[in-house]
């Protein structure tokens, strides 16, 4: 676990190398990051976005089922 956390930290803290096709003068740090060669964090961010959306859907569904079960059992 420590190894993984350390790797994540080193990965994030590495300076970004500019992608050749990118405009050189992005003042925005976020845009500099997106235009860098190092796109793995972008893939990670998109994957996490999809994962959290799915997770929110599953958790919401679970709550709704619990609510329906309680309602149904109280009416029985």
């Amino acid at each position: 676990m420590i190894h993984i956390l350390l790797t994540i930290f080193l990965y994030i803290s590495e300076p970004y190398q500019q992608w050749e096709g990118a405009e050189s003068a992005y003042s925005n740090v976020f845009m500099q990051f997106l235009a860098s060669n190092d796109l793995m964090p972008v893939v990670l961010a998109v994957s996490l976005l999809i994962w959290f959306t799915l997770l929110a859907f599953v958790i919401r569904l679970d709550f709704k089922l619990t609510r329906l079960e309680k309602q149904y059992n109280s009416e029985d």
Partner: peptide, 25 residues
């Protein structure tokens, strides 16, 4: 807080797995 505790563990566990899967060198 109605979800069973193991479901929260699965959610956090898989989030860490996804982060590690992409971030590990």
């Amino acid at each position: 807080f109605a979800l069973a505790i193991w479901k929260y563990i699965v959610a956090v566990w898989l989030t860490i797995v996804i982060i590690a899967g992409f971030a590990v060198d």
